[in-house]
Amino acid sequence: MQHETTPRDTKAAIHRAALELFSGQGYEKTSLREIAEQVGITKASLYYHYSSKQELLRAIIGTFIEDVRSVMAGSDELEWSPESQRELLGGYADVIIKHRTTGPTLTRDIGAVIAALDEDLGDLIATSRRFQLWLAGPNPTLADRLRAAAAIECLGAALSITPDDDVPESEIRNTLLEAALAVLASRTPPTN
């Protein structure tokens, strides 16, 4: 019995091929024809699923952005405590690790990513700012807010560890979460 390919399988194959090509040669240098060829479909078949390269990029990064936004929005519902801070940072780390194959595309072609986000960008920035402010704790100083931003950046380092690096996800998570929490907890006395 021959296995039939479903539209969902084809979309997943398109996403994988696009991510590989976008990461390897860049968004601008990748054509829809190349993506279709790598998947083994015609360009017309690819257009059945996505009307443009930008729509394809938006679909690829859309799940990542929604997952990040969902974790960050959790800060709107939780009262700050060290436990809830750790919980949300852990959730953020999990999202970054889950989507780390998207990382090279996000960082390599930031202009294309920003264009693909379009009207969602303002909301994402506002949600991110609320999340950082919440992470900084009650009545945060400027230093607290900067530490919160740095903690988030620590977790973003997961994007530099690709699945090909063969590092267990639990090790990535634990190491980066520990680093982020250490950044948040660091306090240095003021210098004169």
Rank of each mutant, 00 (worst) to 15 (best):
G24R: 14
E28D: 15
E28Q: 14
K29G: 04
T30S: 10
S31M: 13
I35Y: 10
A36Y: 07
A36I: 07
A36T: 06
E37T: 09
E37G: 09
E37D: 14
E37W: 02
Q38M: 14
Q38P: 04
G40S: 05
I41V: 13
I41P: 02
T42Y: 00
K43T: 12
S45T: 15
L46R: 04
L46W: 04
Y47E: 02
H49Q: 00
H49P: 01
Y50N: 01
S52N: 05
S52F: 01
K53N: 01
K53M: 03
Q54E: 15
Q54L: 11
E55A: 14
E55V: 00
E55Q: 11
L56E: 09
L57N: 05
I61W: 09
I61N: 08
G62W: 05
F64Y: 15
F64Q: 08
I65E: 13
E66R: 15
D67W: 11
D67A: 14
V68I: 15
R69T: 15
R69L: 13
S70R: 15
V71Q: 04
M72I: 11
M72L: 13
G74A: 10
D76E: 14
D76H: 15
E77K: 14
S81H: 12
S81K: 13
P82R: 09
E87K: 13
L88W: 15
G90F: 05
G90N: 08
G90R: 05
G90S: 08
G91Q: 06
G91D: 06
Y92N: 06
A93T: 09
A93K: 07
A93L: 10
D94T: 14
V95F: 12
I96R: 08
I96K: 04
I97E: 09
I97Q: 10
R100G: 03
T102M: 06
P104A: 03
P104D: 11
R108N: 11
D109Y: 10
A112Y: 11
A112C: 07
A112Q: 12
I114P: 11
A116G: 12
E119G: 00
E119S: 10
E119Q: 12
E119I: 00
L121Q: 06
L121S: 06
L121A: 12
G122Q: 09
G122Y: 04
D123S: 08
D123C: 01
D123E: 09
L124F: 14
L124V: 12
I125N: 02
A126C: 03
A126I: 12
T127N: 05
S128N: 10
S128E: 08
R129S: 02
R130N: 07
R130C: 05
R130Y: 02
R130D: 01
F131P: 08
F131K: 00
L133G: 07
W134H: 03
W134V: 05
W134E: 01
L135S: 07
A136L: 00
A136W: 00
A136D: 03
G137I: 00
P138G: 03
N139D: 10
P140W: 02
T141P: 01
T141K: 04
A143E: 13
D144L: 01
D144T: 07
R145G: 02
R147Q: 07
A149W: 06
A150S: 07
A150M: 13
A151C: 08
I152T: 13
I152C: 14
E153P: 02
G156E: 13
A158R: 01
A158Y: 07
A158T: 02
L159C: 06
L159R: 12
L159D: 11
S160Y: 14
I161P: 02
I161W: 03
P163L: 01
D164V: 08
D164A: 15
V167N: 09
P168I: 03
P168A: 11
